[in-house]
Amino acid sequence: MEKVYSRTTGIREDMVNGFCPGCMHSTIIKLIGEVLDEMDIMDKAVGVLGIGCCGLHMEYMTYDNTTAPHGRACAVATGIKRANPDSLVYTYQGDGDFASIGLGESVSAANRGENITVIFVNNGIYGMTGGQMAPTTLFGMKASTAPKGRIAEEHGYPMHMCEILNQLTAPAYLERTSCNTPANVMKTKKAIRKAFENQLNGKGFSMVEIISNCPTNWGVEPLDSLTFIEEKMLPEYPLGVIRDK
């Protein structure tokens, strides 16, 4: 009998990760590890983690990584990539980190066409800090700072980062995927691989926005969070390639 699916070498085998049950942060870091394994570039990969739940990955990753000040992952990644052009540098950021606190750094890095890859995990809420409203929170979606859900007059509208960055000239690749079904998991993996290949080929800024979940702060069971993604998140954030040049 042959092993047809083995654990990636990108995550530590001797530890159980501390993410909540069903959290897709762990699915995504697993996919990144699988892509690095398949491309055989684990030794030159550098992950720049944002603040929030995504920062927890530093305990479990087996390759080089650092954690940036809140929101500044794209700026830190820029420095690492410019100093070590042969390395593969990616940022791993949540919606609070990438689209709110780090909006300036994120848009600036995209506008410069920095040759880095951004993995942007969008679950529509602040996870670690206790379920506050994020720029990506949906209308009517309850958050600890918006008990009645997002109301346009009061809080504005959900931000679509792929579409916002698509207004810029420089970005090379923008795609939105999800991890709610096996097919979407495979598409996410393919998108991550494409974004990494773009960087190795010197194409410039690539971003994969992954629609994720937060069963704990959404207040649902893990299985129900998959339904929530399908019924509520995806109509607001349609999947697909937004730009590929």
Binding site: K3, V4, R7, V16, T27
Partner: peptide, 19 residues
């Protein structure tokens, strides 16, 4: 049938598949 769907969906990398 060794399709590995379970392992790919598992967030915690708890599953390995043989065929």
């Amino acid at each position: 049938i060794g399709c590995s769907i379970c392992a790919r969906m598992c967030p915690d990398a708890a599953i390995e598949v043989y065929k």
